[in-house]
Design a protein around this nucleic acid. Structure first.
Lengths: 220, 220
DNA sequence: CGGCATCCTCTTTGATACTG
DNA sequence: CAGTATCAAAGAGGATGCCG
C-alpha cells in the first residue's frame, strides 16, 4: 500500500459542467460566501482569518476555511506569511482574484437600489462603506487640497479622504477632519450619495459637523 | 379557523442579512442556478419552461420552478401568457432583470480564460455562443453589406449575422451564408475570437467553408 | 405534451465545541 | 489565533406522478 495521507478530497467543487464562461466562472466563485470573501479581500487587502470572519457576519468557521481552500486552489486567493512582527498567515487576492473587481462592481451597482431604505436588522461593518463610495463617487475638484471626512458609523471609525480626483476610504481617526458624520450607515450613504440633503439627513438623526463644502466636491 | 390554503412558504429565501449592496444582490441572484436562468432569458428572450430546462442541463425540474418563483417575487422575472397560437406561459426578464446584463458580462469576461481549452465532457448548447460573440466581438466594417456566418455546432444550427456594427446571433439556417463553420464549439469560438487561425482550426477538425473575409470583419 | 408537485436520498450549510 | 470535528437542519438532485 502506498497511499497519500491526504484523502482525495481536493477539487471537490460542484460544477455546472457547461461549456460557458459564465457557468465556469460560477463554478469557481458561485458558491455561497465566495464572492463576499473576495469583497472582504478587495476592500481590506491582505487579511487575517479572524478579520475575515468579523467582516462576514454569520459565516461558519469551517465554511470560511473551506472556501479559502477552494479559492486558493482556484488561483483566486493566496496565503502569505506575514513578517516576524505579526508572524501570522495572511490571506490575499492573487492578480486573477483582483480581476473579479468588475464582477463585484456590477453586483454592487445592481444591488444599490435594494439597499436604499431598509437597514432593518442587517449587519453592518464600517469598511463596507468603501464599496459604494468608491463605486458611485468621484472627486470633482481634483486640484483642490486634500480633504478628509471622518465617518462614525458602525464598529470602527473610518476616514474618507478626497484628493487628486480619487476617494480613499480607510479605517482610522483623522487629526483635523474637514467634516464629521456620525450616525447610521444608511444616512451617511444617503448624504454622501446625494440622495438626502443635509437638512433631511439631520432630521433623521445624522450628526453633520464641519465644512459642508466637501460634500459638493464628491459627486456621482 | 381561517387559514389560507397556501402555506406561508413565500419569500423563503436565505439572506446574508448585510447592509451591503453586493450581499443584497447575492440574496436575490446568488443562489444556485439563478444567474444561469437569467443568462437563458437574456440570450433567448421570452422562453417556455421546457426551453429553459433544455438550456440548463442538469437542473432538477422542481428547482427550476422554485427559482422562477423566487425570481418572479424579486421582480427579476415575469410570466407572460402567450397569445392563442401558442397559448402557453412564457417567462421573461423584467426591466430590472435585464439590468443584470452587466453582471453576466463581467462574469463572462472573467470566466473567458477558464473556458479556453478543455471542452471535456462539458455540456454545450448552441445558443450559448451568443454570449462570447456579443461580448468580445464588434463589426469593424459597419458600412459594408450584411454578412452571415452559419455555425453548425451543438444541437441546433445558428446564424451569426454581421451588420451595421452589430453582431447578431440567432437560431436558424441561412439561405446563402457567406461562411459556414462546422465543428466543436471551442474551435468555432477559437477561430472567431482569433485565438486560432484558419489553418490551425482546420487542422483541429473544424470545417471552414466560404468567404474568409468576414472573419477579419469581426474583431475584439 | 407543458408545467409543475411530491417523495426520497445525498450533499452542503450552519451552529457549536474543541484543539495545537 | 487559526483553524478542525461533530452533528442537526436545509438544500440540491433524481425519479416519478399528476393535471389541464
Amino acid at each position: 500500500m502506498y497511499f497519500s495521507t491526504t484523502p482525495a478530497k481536493l477539487a471537490n467543487v460542484r460544477s455546472y459542467n457547461e461549456y460557458c464562461a459564465v457557468a465556469q466562472a460560477l463554478d469557481v466563485v458561485g458558491e455561497r460566501w465566495s464572492l463576499l470573501i473576495v469583497r472582504e479581500l478587495l476592500i481590506r487587502g491582505p487579511s487575517r482569518y479572524t478579520d475575515l470572519r468579523s467582516g462576514l457576519p454569520g459565516i461558519a468557521t469551517n465554511l470560511l476555511a473551506e472556501r479559502l481552500r477552494e479559492l486558493e486552489q482556484a488561483g483566486v486567493v493566496k496565503r502569505v506569511e506575514a513578517p516576524p512582527p505579526v508572524a501570522t498567515t495572511l490571506f490575499d487576492l492573487t492578480g486573477r482574484g483582483r480581476e473579479l473587481e468588475p464582477v463585484l462592481n456590477a453586483l454592487g451597482r445592481w444591488g444599490g437600489p435594494l439597499v436604499q431604505r431598509p437597514i432593518g436588522d442587517n449587519e453592518f461593518r464600517s469598511h463596507w462603506l468603501a464599496l459604494p463610495l468608491g463605486l458611485h463617487l468621484k472627486d470633482r475638484r481634483p486640484h483642490s487640497r486634500a480633504q478628509t471626512i471622518q465617518v462614525r458609523s458602525g464598529e470602527e471609525p473610518m476616514i474618507v479622504e478626497v484628493n487628486g480626483g480619487r476617494i480613499n476610504v480607510r479605517p482610522g481617526t483623522a487629526d483635523q477632519p474637514d467634516l464629521v458624520l456620525s450616525g447610521v450607515a444608511s444616512q451617511v450613504l444617503g448624504l454622501m450619495l446625494h440622495h438626502l440633503d443635509v437638512a433631511e439627513a439631520r432630521k433623521r438623526g445624522l450628526k453633520v459637523e464641519g465644512d459642508l463644502g466637501v460634500l459638493n466636491r464628491v459627486q456621482p
